[in-house]
Each structure stands twice: as structure tokens, then as C-alpha cells.
Design a protein around this nucleic acid. Structure first.
Length: 308
DNA sequence: AATGTAGTCAACCGCTGGCGG
DNA sequence: TCCGCCAGCGGTTGACTACAT
């Protein structure tokens, strides 16, 4: 079964663990504790290096390791903590009992990263994406919206969206994107839409009309009313996910705010924490029909009013 | 049914920082 | 202060699996 065991130059076994090896390791640790990992393999009769034993125990054999799918709550905690801590997987894992740093790291790389990308959030900076990847996402969004056919948009419906924080945030993202496309010379140069950016400038104007609160932010990205570093933003009294409210100036990967790590002891509902219920509604990838209708309505509305 | 491709995740590798001599 | 040892951490790899063609 499976691949054959491989050995390093010292004759120490590498690769997947067998049930026999697992049994030896578990029995030894239950009886003696792990003590020095370096000496453990010899004492336990394992032909492995101590590092490998430690990894196997902490990531797989430890009795308190919780296995199986991550819950919504866990996802939200991971996203939130990652927005504060960056790739400090072990620190994040301490806030999630039963989850290992390795498991969280894998889950982030395989699931959550993509999820955030689809939400228009840079998974590194947790800021709205204004790069070309996001530009590539726009046609997907538009296509998804148009794919639903004519659903009879109404101005009232669109106006109603203005009172919905989730949609306001979405408008903000779209607006930020469009501003990036129309205002930045470098982006304009790279803009695959070419002269269409003129039309996007108009689109932006329409968005300003649809989401006046956000337009104020967009006009002042460095944001006196939006404290970009402190994550205590609100949008007309509405709690806004920090990634969006920090508007338009994504930090570089190395610019995660320096964390004084007693953050660990910071309560989850501290000012830095985000009401993550709001995030669910932001996912473009999992949008339900209603979401699509709203977006189509918005886009229809923009197109119609833009033409008139 | 066979093959190709993408996704998942256990395990490894190399680096870093803490600690003791 | 320097040096070596060690545990822990984060990035990466690659075997395995599921799904698509």
C-alpha cells in the first residue's frame, strides 16, 4: 500500500507514518510524556527524527486534536485573526482549541484565501483589491449578474440597497476598483479595457450617487473619518468590515500593523474585531439569487441613468 | 473505463529565537 | 559575549484523492 518508506542518509525513516509507528509514539508519550523530542525516538523505539515525532504528535496524534470540517465560526475567527496577525499560524491556532497551526495554514491556503479573493479582498492585506486580478473578477461579476436575465429593476429597489450595509460595502469595493482603474496612470496603462475606462469614470459618478457615504471616503482615502490603522471604522454608523472601510490603499504584505502580541489576550469583541456576520454577505462566489438581482439592478440602473 | 487536472493535506525543510554552558 | 543545541514556526513539497473530460 502507498509509497514505500524512504530513509535519509542517516537511515532515519521519512514519509508517512504507519499505524505501528503511531501506536509506539502514542503509547510512549502517554506513559512518559514527550520530554526531549530529540531523545524520544530512541527511547520509544522509533526510527524517526525527533522533529518528525513532534510534528506527528502535535498535528495528528494528540488526543485533543479536533478533526473535520471547519465551522463558520472558526472560519470567521481565522479571517479576523489573520487580518490582525498575518501568517502567525501558531498564534492563531491558540485561539482555536483543537486546531493545529498546520491545519489552519492548510485551510487558509486552500479555502479561505480563495474565498477572500472572490469577495474582492486581498488575502494578504485584507484590503479591497485594486489590482488586475480584481479587474479580472469584474467581468465574472457582471456575467453572473446578466446571466439572470431581465428581472425588472426598479429605482426603489436600488434606493433600498442604500440602507443595506452589506450592499453599501459592495458599492464601496466596486467604486474603489473603478477609481483605481480611472485615476491611476499605471493602472490605466495596464487597463485591459482601454478606452472603456472613460465609461467607468461615469460609472463611478453613478456609484457616488448611489453610495454617498462611501464617496466621502473615496474622496479622502487617507481618511480622517476612517482610521485606517485602528480598525474602528464605521460607515454612517454602520459597522463595516475593516478590509473595506480602510478603503483603497492596500498595505504591502510587509505592512501588517505591528502587533503588540498581547493582542492574544485582546477580547474578540475589542474595537479591532469585526462583526463577521457582515462578511458572509460579501461573498461573490456564493451569492444567492437575491444578491445577483441586486447587483444586476445596480448595474442596470447605472447603465440606464448613465445613458440618459 | 481511462486519462488528465485540480484540490487537499500530511510531512518535510530551513530558519529563527530562546536557553544554558 | 559567543557558541551550540533544541523546540517551534512558517513555507513548501508531493502523494493521494476527487472530479472532469
Amino acid at each position: 500500500m502507498g509509497r514505500p518508506p524512504c530513509y535519509d542518509e542517516m537511515g532515519v525513516k521519512k514519509g508517512p507514518w504507519t499505524p505501528e509507528e503511531d501506536k509506539k509514539l502514542v503509547e510512549y508519550i502517554q506513559r512518559h510524556g514527550h520530554g526531549s523530542w530529540r531523545n524520544l525516538p530512541k527511547n520509544a523505539g522509533l526510527n524517526r527524527c525527533g522533529k518528525s515525532c513532534r510534528l506527528r504528535w502535535t498535528n495528528y496524534l494528540r488526543p485533543d486534536v479536533k478533526r473535520g470540517k471547519f465551522s463558520e465560526d472558526e472560519e470567521q475567527i481565522i479571517i479576523h485573526l489573520h487580518s490582525i496577525l498575518g501568517n502567525k499560524w501558531s498564534t492563531i491556532s491558540r485561539r482555536l482549541p483543537g486546531r493545529t497551526d498546520n491545519e489552519i495554514k492548510n485551510y487558509w491556503n486552500t479555502h479561505l484565501k480563495k474565498k477572500l479573493l472572490l469577495m474582492g479582498v486581498d488575502p494578504v492585506t485584507h484590503a479591497p483589491r485594486t489590482d488586475l486580478d480584481l479587474l479580472a473578477l469584474l467581468p465574472v461579476l457582471l456575467a453572473a449578474a446578466t446571466g439572470l436575465g431581465n428581472l425588472g429593476s426598479s429605482r426603489n429597489h436600488v434606493r433600498g440597497l442604500q440602507s443595506d450595509p452589506v450592499h453599501l460595502v459592495r458599492l464601496g469595493v466596486l467604486q474603489t476598483l473603478i477609481q483605481a482603474m480611472t485615476s491611476s496612470p499605471s493602472n490605466a496603462a495596464m487597463n485591459p479595457l482601454g478606452s472603456a475606462s472613460l465609461g467607468f469614470a461615469q460609472l463611478n459618478q453613478q456609484l457616488v450617487g448611489l453610495a454617498p457615504d462611501l464617496s466621502a471616503v473615496a474622496a479622502n482615502p487617507s481618511g480622517s473619518s476612517f482610521q485606517t490603522g485602528t480598525k474602528t471604522e464605521s460607515c454612517s454608523g454602520i459597522a463595516v468590515p475593516v478590509a473595506f472601510s480602510s478603503c483603497a490603499v492596500p498595505a504591502s504584505p510587509s505592512t501588517h500593523p505591528p502587533i503588540s502580541i498581547p493582542q492574544e489576550s485582546a477580547p474578540m469583541d475589542s474595537p479591532a474585531s469585526i462583526p463577521f456576520e457582515d462578511w458572509h454577505g460579501l461573498s461573490l462566489g456564493e451569492s444567492n439569487a437575491d444578491d445577483m438581482i441586486c447587483w444586476k439592478d445596480i448595474i442596470d440602473q447605472i447603465c440606464w441613468t448613465g445613458q440618459s
